[in-house]
Amino acid sequence: MMLSISPISAFSDNYIWCVARHGEAIIVDPGDAAPVLQHLKEMGLTLSAIIITHHHYDHVNGIELLLEHYPNIPVYGPENQCASIGYRLKHDDCITLLNQTFKILAVPGHTLDHIAYYLEDADSGPALFCGDTLFAGGCGRLFEGTPEQMLTSLGLIQALPANTAIYCAHEYTVNNLRFAREVEPDNSELLVRFENAQAMRTDNIPTVPSKLALELLTNPFLRTDNSAVQERVATHAELKYWNQNDIFANLRAWKDDF
Rank of each mutant, 00 (worst) to 15 (best):
L3M: 10
S4Y: 09
I5K: 12
S6E: 13
P7D: 05
A10I: 07
I16M: 06
I16W: 13
W17N: 01
V19D: 00
E24I: 08
D29L: 05
P30K: 07
V36E: 13
V36A: 08
Q38N: 11
Q38K: 14
G44T: 00
L45M: 05
S48Y: 01
I51F: 07
H55E: 15
H55Q: 15
G62T: 08
I63R: 11
L65T: 11
L65P: 01
I73W: 11
I73G: 03
V75Y: 12
G77D: 13
E79M: 14
N80E: 09
Q81T: 09
C82R: 14
I85Q: 04
H91M: 00
H91N: 03
I95D: 07
I95Q: 04
T96A: 06
L97H: 08
N99K: 14
T101P: 02
T101M: 02
K103S: 14
I104Q: 02
I104L: 06
L105E: 12
L105I: 13
L105H: 10
V107I: 15
P108K: 03
T111P: 02
L112K: 15
H114S: 13
Y117E: 09
D121E: 14
D123K: 02
D123Y: 02
S124R: 04
S124G: 09
S124M: 12
S124T: 13
P126S: 14
A127I: 01
F129P: 01
C130M: 10
C130W: 07
G131D: 13
L134R: 00
G137L: 03
G137V: 01
C139W: 07
C139L: 01
L142I: 08
L142S: 08
F143K: 11
T146E: 05
M150C: 05
M150V: 03
L151R: 11
T152Y: 11
G155Q: 06
G155C: 06
L156N: 05
I157A: 01
L160C: 10
P161S: 07
T164N: 05
I166V: 07
I166R: 03
Y167S: 12
Y167G: 07
E171A: 08
N176D: 14
E182A: 08
V183T: 09
V183H: 14
V183P: 06
E184W: 12
E189G: 03
E189P: 06
L190V: 05
L191M: 08
V192N: 05
R193Y: 09
F194G: 00
F194Y: 15
A199P: 01
T202C: 02
I205H: 07
P206I: 13
P206Q: 15
T207Q: 13
V208M: 10
P209M: 08
L212K: 02
L212F: 12
A213Q: 11
A213D: 12
A213E: 13
P220V: 00
T224Q: 09
N226W: 12
Q230L: 03
T235S: 14
T235P: 00
A237G: 01
K240F: 07
N243F: 02
N243L: 07
N245P: 08
A249P: 03
R252E: 05
K255Q: 04
F258M: 00
F258N: 02
